[in-house]
């Protein structure tokens, strides 16, 4: 049922923005952005339950919380960067969209820096000085 709602919302937004594109392109962009944000917010509630289950599973299997947190942050960054980039790309600003993607990539790599640091430290300790 929810899927039908989302698809309906998307179809209506697409038709509206097509109609608007002739007269006012800026409103067409606004409609597209609004539809995207609405669907995104709609999904946040659903994601919450999934994340709770994942956290419970992680606690049960004895995985450190840090790993799960890192992984979830990666997904979050990837999705938000993708979403923003697509909206901007719809508006015809490809260069800004690629900057947003770059920012997402950099932030993902930043999450990896502490892990890399610890691994390298361990390797250095393992090797005889």
């Amino acid at each position: 049922m929810e899927m039908i709602q989302i698809v309906g919302l998307g179809l209506i937004a697409a038709i509206l923005s097509l109609m608007m594109k002739e007269q006012k392109p800026i409103f067409a962009f606004l409609i597209a952005a609004f539809a995207g944000i609405t669907i995104f917010l709609f999904l946040i509630g659903k994601i919450g339950t999934v994340l709770e289950t994942l956290e419970e599973l992680a606690a049960a299997s004895g995985v450190q919380n840090v790993y799960l947190k890192t992984i979830l942050k990666i997904i979050g960054i990837a999705y938000i960067a993708e979403f923003g980039a697509q909206i901007v790309r719809d508006a015809g600003q490809d260069s800004i969209a690629s900057k947003i993607e770059l920012a997402g990539k950099v932030l993902i790599i930043v999450l990896a820096v502490p892990i890399i640091g610890i691994i390298i430290e361990t390797v250095v300790k393992l090797l005889p000085a």
Binding site: I71, A81, I108, L111, I115
Partner: peptide, 11 residues
């Protein structure tokens, strides 16, 4: 994003 995410996950 795949390459970057994969690297972090493999780490």
């Amino acid at each position: 994003m795949e390459r970057y995410v994969k690297m972090v996950l493999s780490l």
